[in-house]
């Protein structure tokens, strides 16, 4: 890897997966030689049926899981930097909040683990809550919030560390459609404001087209990249994009790719 520690070229990827293979103890081949570059500033969706290894890929990028073979490189980060030093934010499928802690304390957590006192980060935490529209709920407990609001707290917690790379694992899968649309818009707005690079795992064609600049369609058994679709629609996007002919055409393209990916997997099983 020609990764010079600080003076990375503007177009060198944030993270590069090279031939990443992951097999589990029970013999399942979750990922088969996955190669993927994540470019700075892009919104990359991993779209695929369950079992295609998209969540596994995300966990490997996050350092929560380790590849059986292949490598993960961080060309724009220093050599040997720990996973948490790489400035990653992670949003899980569930809000994953500590039920015994207030909204404020939940958002404070990542900074608290770095040894920052409550007083010294008050502004940063309140700013994060402000951005997700929950400043008024700083003292509430998670159980007092709706599902969508819990997810917003989870987002605030991810953005409070000012990550360069945000990893999201089907974050809105459990929410109703109205809340989901709203949060989709929020994500786009936050990405524009904060300049995130996002890797977004989803099984929703519509969500992936609405949000992404690039969609990687994955197939299952073994998990692999099946197709790639560019979404060259300029930002900001809004509700009018959702009803545009472009959107419909791209959804059809992504949906077709997904169908073919599923058939490909099905044939191999049969």
């Amino acid at each position: 890897m020609s990764s010079s520690s600080s003076a990375a070229a503007p177009h060198s990827p944030v993270v590069r997966l090279e031939g990443v293979t992951k097999s589990f103890a029970n013999g399942t081949l979750a990922l088969d030689r996955l190669t993927l570059d994540v470019a700075p500033g892009e919104f990359l969706s991993l779209l695929g049926p369950s079992g295609c290894g998209k969540s596994t890929a995300l966990r490997i990028i996050a350092g929560l899981s380790h590849p059986t073979s292949g490598r993960v490189d961080w060309p724009s980060a220093g050599e040997g930097a720990g996973a948490h030093a790489r400035s990653i934010g992670f949003v899980f499928q569930e809000p994953t909040l500590m039920p015994w802690a207030t909204v404020f304390n939940n958002v404070w957590l990542p900074l608290r683990l770095k040894g920052r006192s409550k007083a010294s980060v008050r502004d940063a935490v309140m700013d994060a809550l402000e951005r997700v529209g929950l400043a008024a709920f700083a003292d509430a407990y998670p159980r007092e919030l709706s599902g969508g609001m819990k997810m917003r707290v989870s987002l605030a917690r991810a953005l409070v560390t000012r990550p360069k790379l945000l990893l999201m694992d089907e974050p809105f899968a459990a929410l109703d459609e109205i809340t989901r649309f709203k949060l989709n818009n929020d994500i786009l707005k936050l990405q524009a404001e904060l300049g995130w690079t996002v890797v977004f795992v989803t099984h929703s064609v519509f969500e992936s087209v609405y949000l992404s600049s690039r969609i990687v369609v994955m197939a299952a058994r073994p998990g692999r990249v099946f197709d790639e679709i560019a979404v060259p629609v300029p930002r900001p996007r809004n509700e009018s994009f959702r009803t545009s002919p472009d959107y419909v055409a791209l959804c059809r393209e992504a949906s077709d790719a997904l169908t073919r990916a599923m058939q490909a997997a099905g044939r191999e099983v049969a």
Binding site: A62, L64, A83, H84, F92, T96, M98, L109, P110, L113
Partner: peptide
């Protein structure tokens, strides 16, 4: 998931 989160943030 909370354990993962703590690991991610280097706890």
């Amino acid at each position: 998931n909370l354990l993962n989160l703590f690991e991610l943030y280097g706890a």
